[in-house]
Design a binder for these strands. Structure first.
Lengths: 140, 140
DNA sequence: ATATTATACATGCATATACATATAAAACAA
DNA sequence: TTGTTTTATATGTATATGCATGTATAATAT
């Protein structure tokens, strides 16, 4: 294995390309793919927190705080101060947020299938394996 | 192969993690990893253009234009209007740009080795293979 | 009980990302 | 040659990213 090729550039290139693919498909809903990920995680959790989403999405706290803003501003997410701990703001989907997620879901599913068809089973599995490895190895 | 897990989120998570790893190591030079990639590509090309860098780095034209700005501002890149074609600006490393790149190079090499040690030969090869597949499949 | 430390989230700053669009120059068509 | 199209780069706007730091609350130590 030589190290002539930058692993980081390889990842960033790939990330840009696949992101554009998803973005294009979600654009009919005026929804960014990062926003979809937040809606999806929140949907599964029912109620969640900034802290918990950081861990699920593997994203910096300050980045997440900002990424939540448009979704809150547009009324897709609602915040409730935690009754037990004044520092925590509980995050959940509003009615319109749930509606938007359920509208986005089939588009995302279709996009997933398209990606699978395009890159094939083996590469698709490699992507998920690599993601797990990276989380194991690099996540603090 | 099921498609429960978002390929895009997998890529974005991984990209964020590995980027942070490289950023941390390059931070002693006050250099971002995306900037390093630009310096590196320019170093190999000797003289290049926005257009050519777009293709090498697989990055949007408007993004690249903006990413070049700090490097031009800080004098690491110099621009020369092409004598043949008034639309083109030829990009090359300045003396300080070359110096910075050569200072960053051993840090990058060391980081590459660390990544290789951390993720192993097999995953490292998978990353490069995946990158090639993604470029083939998604790049316009 | 009060001082200290840890935790949860927010803000300042700088760079990164890309779509829609603008501008200018070159290539091409009539 | 003039009008049209294509090409190379730049700008407006909005979101994404994360380090350093700030603020408020909770937990812990003395």
């Amino acid at each position: 294995m030589n190290t002539d090729y930058c692993f980081n550039l390889a990842m960033r290139k790939s990330s840009r390309l696949i992101t554009q693919f998803y973005e294009e498909r979600l654009s009919t809903l005026d929804l960014k793919v990062g926003q979809f990920s937040i809606l999806r995680a929140t949907f599964f959790k029912g109620s969640t927190t900034n802290k918990e989403l950081q861990d699920i999405l593997v994203i910096d706290q300050t980045t997440l705080t900002r990424n939540l803003k448009p979704l809150i501003r547009d009324g897709y997410l609602q915040l409730q101060p935690d009754p037990e701990d004044g520092r925590i703001k509980n995050i959940s989907l509003s009615k319109s947020g749930k509606k938007l997620y359920l509208k986005a879901l089939p588009i995302w599913e279709q996009t997933q299938k398209e990606v699978l068809n395009k890159i094939g089973n083996k590469q698709a599995q490699a992507v998920l394996d690599m993601s797990n490895t990276f989380v194991d190895v690099f996540k603090k």
